[in-house]
Amino acid sequence: MIINHPLLGPCDAQEFIYKGDARLIDRPDGMIEGAEAAFFDYAYLRDNPAGQHRELWFHEQGDRSWLVVTRNTVTHEITHVELARDVARKSGQSA
């Protein structure tokens, strides 16, 4: 698989470490009411869809950025790549 890095252009997926569902960006607040249940959900439960999947890849052997890659889990086709930083900022998870 080739991941089209937004800054570096096409890179071999072998340069990356796979983390999983991009919803891991939305880490719950540990202080809120019901935090225990929220963290159980966050840590262990996954949608695991067959089809479009937004997922985190870490460019370990490159610029060490985190990317959000939209990939089809049935065909392995990659349709969209964003910097995880931008995604996190948009959702208010990062300054």
Binding site: L45, R46, D47, N48, A50
Partner: peptide, 18 residues
């Protein structure tokens, strides 16, 4: 391997990735 897909039909999310 289809556990998540089938159980999603019962409204469940599983601690599983395929």
């Amino acid at each position: 391997g289809n556990s998540s897909r089938v159980m999603a039909q019962a409204g469940m999310r599983l601690p599983i990735e395929s």
